[in-house]
Each structure stands twice: as C-alpha cells, then as structure tokens.
Design a protein around this nucleic acid. Structure first.
Lengths: 216, 216
DNA sequence: ATGTGTGAACTATTTCACAGCC
DNA sequence: GGCTGTGAAATAGTTCACACAT
C-alpha cells in the first residue's frame, strides 16, 4: 500500500516528540488522509490498535517498517551523476531508512573518479560487476532520456527487479520488474493545469463552491 | 487529468520522428497505458480523432498543450538551493515546456550571491518581493523539512496557489491552494515493499497453505 | 476495413456508520 | 465515553465490446 511510508513518517515524528499513543483521527490529520481510510489501511496489516485508546506509536512504527521491508537493508546503485544524481547521492533520507548506496556510476570520463558524498564515481562499464558484488537490488536511473532504456535493460539483465527512474521516458521492462517514475516536469504541468483552471473559474462563477467542485 | 503530460511527451517524440498520424493503440503503447483508457481520456477533451484513421500528431499535441495551460508561460521560484535545488535550477525540462524560473532563494548567506544556472541566488528575505515583481504563480520548495511549512505559509500569503514540495513533510494549506509532493525516500520504500514481496512471496504462500491445512 | 467514441459491465477505492471492545 | 475494526453504500476509475464514421 502506497500510503504506508507516509504513516511511517508521521509516526516517526510523533515518536521523536515522545508521543506514546495516537488515535486514528490524529494520525490521519498528520498524514493528510481521512481517518476511516487510515484505519482500513492499518487493519489490513493486522489488528494493532486498542479500542477506546488508539495505537501505540512505537509498536505501530515497527509493524509498518516490517511490512515495508525496512527491517532489512536494501542496496542501491545510482546511475548518472549529473546534478540530480549528486543530489540523490547526498540525500540523507536514504541511509536513515535502510537504503545503502553501494555506488555511483557514470559514462562521462570527466565525472568518473570524482569523490561525491564519500564515494568514488565508477565507470558505467563496472555496472554488472557492481550489481553482483554488492548485491544491488534497487537501481536509480538519473541519466538523460536517451541512455535510460539501454541502461535499464542492462540492470534487468544483471538481475535487478526494482528501478526508480528519473529520466523522462517510459521504460519497458519484462514481467516481474517494478519501475517507479519521478518526473519533475510532469508535476509542474499538473500544477499548471490546476492553476489555469483556478484562473478561469471565478470569471464564470465567483463562488468558492464552484472552485471546490472543479477541484473535486 | 494526470496522464495528459505523459501523452504530451509521447506525442512530442513522435512529432520529432516526423510521424503525422497515430492510432490510440500505438500512442497507448508509447505512453504505457491501455488504449481504451487513452481514448476515453482524449475524448474528454473533445473529439480530436478521425475514425478509421487515428489522431493527427501536431493537432493533438496543440490541443493537449492548451488543455494543460502550456500555451502560456508560468513563472516559477525555487526555494532552497541545496543539491536538489541546484539540480532543479539546471533542469532543461522546465524551460522547454513553458516554465520560466524567475529566481533562486536560500537562507544560507554562504549560498546567497552564488551564480547557478545563470541566476544569482537571492536571500529568502526577498521572497515576497520576488513573487510580486515577477508574477510567480508556482513555487518549488526544496528546503529541509523543518523550514518547509513556514516558507509555504509565506508564499501562500504572498498569493501563490501552487506549490511543488520536495521536503519530506505534509504541508497544510488553505482551501484553493494545490500542493504536489515528490518524496524520494517514499518511492524507494514502495519499491522495497514490492521487492520484499517478490523474495518472500512463494515461501510464505507455501507456509500459510500448510498452516491452513493443519488447522482445518 | 479500420479505428474512434462511448454506453455498459466490471473492478478498485473511499467514505459512511455502527457494532463491539476497552 | 471513546476509538477501533469492518460490513455496507457510495464513488471513482478501468476495461470491454461494438455502433458508427471515414
């Protein structure tokens, strides 16, 4: 379930503040969802709450971590060390959640050999070796669009079954391989779409009810 | 509709290759969706196809651009010039789709004044002035989590109604303001979840069958 | 012939509302 | 009294399948 990481984050911040117990309503507000939805999501993992009381923060935190597979370490390789690859390499959120970056790879000989976030950039020829030697199970592709599909084919051939793609292309992969895509320009386009709707809306009908209807 | 930008991208690449006409089936494959879904999405914009023939690439490209509001320019401000902010500032996909970066802002005095992607980083105190002077309508927040909510409040107070948030927090905003979130660590967690399922799936299946058999 | 546009069937997700337990 | 867990209802989204235009 795609919302578990959000609950996990909300619970972490509650735990840091020393909260021991939380109701579905409070947690739902912190996660930005409806409380009935939150309860249904959690009940799908098991019956971890106490009626009349709520959920024990630490216990629920552990159960969700286990469900997400975060009680074990995942080895990640980052391909493409441009601006975005550098940002990803230095991103603290990886290490703190059980993701270990095994290495950075790039095709550009000027980039290979540079030290970034405590790692030396390796040449892309080392890709298959690195995947095997470090037991990489998740690969991040942060290359230009033109290189993405052939690199994806290579990592899949080397046995990787999870890919996080930042290149603006639809990657095609065999059955059984998961691809998730993050596309910055698509996010902006969706915002522009809504922004345009807002600008045009009040002209036709100035009430906020109309705006709500359009957004719903 | 959140899939229009994907169709737009697929159409752009068809147009570059000089394709004049495309069927819903071909375009669906390029976009990674079902063809019936694609036709329904497009029919919602109007009747832009020709039965027995398909869609004219250039014409559809224009219609989708117009629907998404990309025939006008959108002014963007980027707040937070860390690794990620730098990557965003240098990202070519913005300019090519009608998004103009008006400026970069940061609170760190060591960062302020630096030249990045042809722009000089301004101090965060200039935020409200910049939004008004440049007519910023979309703000990108690429700051640490701790600063995100108060900066979001400031941009909303200054009249911005669209925010793209990279900080790992749920931003709360008034009715009528759109927030989209990109969270790198959540994407990895979702991949880890599926990865775990793949590894453990068959094993667990066998076990639970066994338990059922014993309990029955 | 070919491929769009779309009602109808189906599937998934969200929300309601309340019984049951603390 | 208060809050979870969950059937049932409502809503949203997807896919089918075919009439109809070219």
């Amino acid at each position: 379930m795609a919302r578990l990481p959000i609950y996990l984050r909300a619970l972490s911040s509650l735990a840091e503040r020393g909260t021991a117990t939380v109701s579905s309503e409070e947690l739902a507000v912190a996660a930005g969802v409806n409380s009935a939805k939150l309860r249904k999501d959690l009940s799908h993992l098991g019956s971890y709450g106490t009626r009349g009381v709520g959920y024990e923060v630490e216990y629920l935190l552990y159960q969700i971590s286990r469900e997400l597979g975060l009680t074990q370490d995942w080895v990640v390789a980052i391909i493409g060390v441009g601006n975005l690859g550098r940002a990803l390499a230095g991103y603290g959120g990886f290490a703190s959640r059980g993701f270990r970056v095994a290495g950075l790879l790039d095709a550009d000989t000027a980039t290979v050999g540079q030290d970034i976030a405590g790692m030396t950039v390796q040449h892309i020829d080392e890709l298959e070796t690195m995947i095997k030697d470090h037991g990489v199970s998740i690969t991040v592709i942060a290359t230009p669009a033109s290189a993405a599909q052939s690199l994806c084919d290579r990592v899949v051939a080397a046995g990787v079954t999870s890919v996080l793609n930042f290149a603006p292309v639809v990657l095609s992969v065999p059955e059984g391989v998961d691809v998730r895509k993050v596309d910055l320009s698509i996010e902006l386009q969706i915002l522009a779409f809504h922004e345009q709707r807002k600008a045009g809306g009040p002209e036709e009908n100035g009430t906020s009810q109309y705006i709500e209807a359009v957004e719903a």
